[in-house]
Amino acid sequence: MVLLNHLELPILSLAINAVLAKIADADIASTVPTIIAPFLVPASKLKLEGGYLTTNSSKLPIYGIQVGPETDVSRAIAAKTQKPPPSLQIHYEPLACFLQLARAANLPTFIVVGQRSQGPFNPASSDDIETLYKIGELIASTTGTYFQREQTKTNWIPTTKLASDAEAWRAFYG
């Protein structure tokens, strides 16, 4: 499990590329790992037929996007998620970056997209936390891992940001 929290381009693309390259280079005898990538996308970045998706619905959808070869795990998750409607447009740079690099690596990848009502540095709403729970339970039930809702802590406090992209670039390379 890798958590890339609050990284921005170009650092994000370097980190994703390094992780995918490490997975692709791993000496795995007979099984090909399926990468499951959950993304919480701000509602303002999801557009459906010219308008924005709303958070008024009592049941926010969890969308699933298959990338690369299909596996048993990806089929199981696809059965429990909604396929995005053809008119859905996602304008979220971290997801676009990951999608391009996953396609280039041609690794079995399944992207789970949940809607976030708040910005990344605002306090989480109950809908945001509910979406996190739904994604956690979905992944746990499909992969045979353990997820306990009562002990999940959600912390939306931002990490310290560097003053500029140039400083972030230098910090990444040392």
Rank of each mutant, 00 (worst) to 15 (best):
M1T: 12
L7M: 10
L9N: 11
L12F: 11
L14E: 12
D27Y: 01
V32G: 01
I36S: 00
A37R: 03
P38T: 09
L40N: 10
S44D: 03
K45C: 15
K47C: 07
G51P: 01
G51A: 13
Y52C: 02
N56S: 14
N56K: 15
L60P: 08
Y63C: 03
Y63L: 03
S74C: 03
A79S: 13
T81D: 05
K83N: 11
P85K: 04
I90V: 15
H91D: 13
H91N: 12
Y92L: 03
Y92I: 05
E93G: 02
F98Q: 02
L99Y: 00
L107S: 04
P108G: 01
T109S: 06
F110V: 06
F110S: 01
I111S: 04
Q118N: 10
G119E: 10
G119A: 15
G119T: 10
S125Y: 09
S125Q: 10
D128W: 09
D128Y: 07
E130K: 14
Y133E: 04
K134I: 00
G136L: 08
L138V: 01
L138S: 04
G144R: 00
Q148N: 12
R149I: 00
K153T: 14
T154C: 11
I157V: 14
I157D: 09
I157S: 12
K161P: 04
A171I: 00
F172S: 05
